[in-house]
Nucleic acid binder design. Structure first.
Length: 640
DNA sequence: TCTACACCTATGACTTGATA
DNA sequence: TATCAAGTCATAGGTGTAGA
């Protein structure tokens, strides 16, 4: 049962009644009449509570077993965090014998917020404009895996005071005027340090080159002490001749890099390099050395305190060597950084967090387009394409040869259209041509739309064949009757279409050695071979086509079929069996080869669909990267 | 019958270890 | 380092009961 605290009004009413001398039970009854339900112990508690308050100097104190957030503890916590370099919460908790969570709660309740001190990049309107002009061009050069050929290089300063192991956090109050700004670290004047040059690529990293303090890094120094050793030692090691990689030198637009002498040296040595016109200043995504590698290295150095320049050099070399295991991420032209960028109007907008996390990543990105599948698809489909083209050409030629206008006229004639072999050739050829074109060009040009069409068309053909086969099996009697009817139409049209005639002749004479649909007498249905044609003086009346003649008679007498339909005539010179039963027998005899052909066709179709989908998925995966690389400005402008 | 007290439960403030 | 869930503890209010 929930217990609600009695209100101050009820408490005041009880107190008033007690002062007037009413007993506790009477007070309960009086309050009941007023609609207030309290128990007698409650009245007793009020009486005792007031008594305690009178006896104590202050209000009722709340005693807890282990009060942690006491004023003194809170004060101590605030004293510890409200300094330039506060200790960790864990250390504070250990010191004050409270938990880290309690420290966190005290900090939060006291109105403090944690801020990480970071250096920030200043992005001028000029930088913004250059990004807009140059980003697309640069990212096009980096796209489709070409970034693997790049060697981004850069110099940076390492200072002793950056390696003191100091924490880069501070606590700030909402009332602080700098609350909405990042805390910008200021370098101390004339710190002890030196400059280091280095570079990374998908093939590995260069040797670090230390610049002697006090040396002037001009074009001469850059060529002799950096570029020449790089060309003679690093490049042969990283890009061996067998790899055939056209490596591209990636450097920023420092004065020594863009000097005429340096450019001349690069061109004389036929080095492909990023020109000053392509370089995007202050762009974390375009300068992995500046915003990722050096940052990572400095982060590692900052963890320990280093007291001398020599020690710093050793530590840098040690950390540089350790970066071997994460070599792959060097090849990705994007960085992990929480860099903030300030534009001219001092507005803050975040950019870098949108970039991929690559530092310390262990997951490998091995996705690429399979060349084997791509060129297999291309090779197979180009044959299919050429074959389709040839079949179409033959069909069109045959169709035109017959009589174009007559053919167009016959398009409207029901029942004979699909028995035109030329037209069948054209339709099949066009279909093969389209599918072959889609598969061939789609795989070669990595066009996902064409590949989708290709796989979709193949899938439709496959399922249509499957459905056709199933229906034929289920309705085999009906199909047989319908086939018989259509074949009879073909026989009736024998003299109307030369191609149809050639086809029927080939079936009867060369393939099945048959005559008519069910038997040779089916030819009576053709007007030219029907006995009634005798009236008009047709020589073929009461005969069968010459293709019905047995081979031994056909060579000697092309008219061996004449008169064979007459009742008195002999049939020993012609085939008397119909083509339909003969065809049935042929399939029964060749069931194994037919089945093999069907299975091979089905497998080829399924493989075609799988290959096309696989290739399409690979392309989409690569495109996702390409789109990301090609439009880094999308994220950038979104924050303006 | 009245009162004080023990005991029980609900509630809320607080602490703490685990974990993201 | 922040946050969550579970546990701890004090307080308020209800119930039952012993004692005056």
């Amino acid at each position: 049962m929930p217990r609600n605290k009695i209100s101050d009004i009820v408490e005041g009413r009880i107190l008033q009644l007690l002062r007037w001398g009413y007993s506790q039970s009477l007070i309960v009854n009086i309050l009941k009449l007023d609609g207030i339900h309290v128990s007698q112990p409650t009245v007793s508690n009020v009486k005792q509570k007031i008594g305690r308050q009178r006896n104590s100097e202050s209000k009722i104190k709340i005693f807890r077993k282990k009060p942690s957030q006491t004023p003194s503890i809170i004060k101590k916590v605030i004293e510890k965090i409200d300094v330039k370099e506060p200790p960790t919460q864990r250390a504070i908790a250990k010191d004050l014998h409270i938990s880290q969570s309690t420290v966190s709660n005290i900090i939060k309740n006291s109105g403090f917020t944690l801020r990480k001190k970071q250096k920030v990049q200043k992005l001028t309107s000029s930088n913004v404009m250059k990004r807009g002009q140059r980003s697309f061009k640069l990212y096009r050069r980096l796209a489709r895996g070409r970034y693997k050929n790049f060697i981004p290089t850069d110099e940076t300063w390492f200072y002793l005071d950056e390696t003191s192991g100091r924490r880069k956090v501070c606590y700030i109050k909402k009332t602080d005027p700098d609350y909405d700004r990042m805390i910008i670290q200021q370098n101390t004047s004339r710190p002890k340090g030196f400059m280091v040059w280095g570079g990374v690529s998908s093939q590995g990293k260069t040797t670090l080159r230390f610049v002697t303090p006090g040396t002037k890094v001009n074009s001469n120094y850059y060529i002799n002490n950096v570029l020449k050793p790089f060309l003679t030692k690093d490049v042969p090691r990283l890009f061996r001749k067998g790899k055939k990689l056209k490596w591209i030198f990636h450097q920023d637009s420092a004065p020594s890099h863009t000097a005429k002498e340096t450019i001349k040296f690069l061109e004389q040595n036929k080095i492909h390099y990023i020109t000053p016109q392509e370089w995007m200043p202050a762009s974390p995504d375009a300068a992995p050395m500046d915003y990722s590698i050096w940052g990572h290295l400095k982060q590692q150095l900052n963890k320990t305190r280093i007291d001398s320049i020599e020690e710093l050099k050793k530590k840098i070399l040690y950390e540089w060597r350790k970066m071997n295991e994460t070599r792959r991420y060097f090849s990705t032209p994007c960085i992990q950084s929480s860099t903030q960028i300030i534009d001219d109007s001092d507005k803050l907008f975040s950019m870098a967090p949108r970039f991929q996390k690559v530092v310390r990543t262990t997951r490998r990105d091995d996705t690429e387009i399979s060349r084997c599948i791509k060129y297999s698809m291309f090779g197979f489909n180009i044959l299919f394409w050429i074959l389709g083209f040839m079949i179409t050409a033959i069909g069109i030629y045959a169709w035109i040869e017959k009589d174009t206008f007559d053919n167009f006229g016959r398009l409207t004639m029901r029942g004979t259209l699909f028995f035109d072999p030329a037209l069948v050739f054209v339709l099949v050829g066009v279909f093969m041509f389209c599918i072959g074109f889609a598969g061939c060009v789609g795989s070669l040009r990595e066009n996902t739309c064409l590949l989708l069409f290709f796989s979709f068309a193949l899938a439709i053909i496959f399922f249509a064949q499957l459905a056709f086969g199933t229906l034929v099996f289920i309705y085999r009697e009906k199909v047989k009757n319908e086939g018989e009817k259509q074949l009879m139409i073909m026989i009736e049209s024998y003299r109307d279409d030369p191609d149809l005639q050639n086809m029927i002749d080939w079936i009867q004479r060369d393939w099945l050695h048959c005559c008519g649909v069910n038997n040779y007498r089916n030819w009576e249905s053709n007007i030219y071979f029907n006995c009634s044609s005798k009236i008009v003086g047709s020589v073929e009346a009461c005969g069968v086509p010459a293709s019905c003649c047995r081979a031994e008679y056909f060579h000697n007498n092309k008219q061996c079929g004449y008169g064979t339909l007459e009742s008195s005539a002999g049939t020993h010179m012609i085939y008397t069996d119909g083509c339909l039963p003969k065809a049935s027998q042929w399939f029964e005899r060749h069931i194994l080869p037919v089945a093999i052909v069907v299975v091979v066709l089905a497998v080829l179709q399924i493989l075609g669909i799988c290959f096309a989908q696989n290739l399409r998925n690979d392309i989409l995966a690569q495109k996702a990267k390409w789109i990301w690389h090609a439009h880094p400005m999308m994220n950038y402008y979104r924050h303006q």
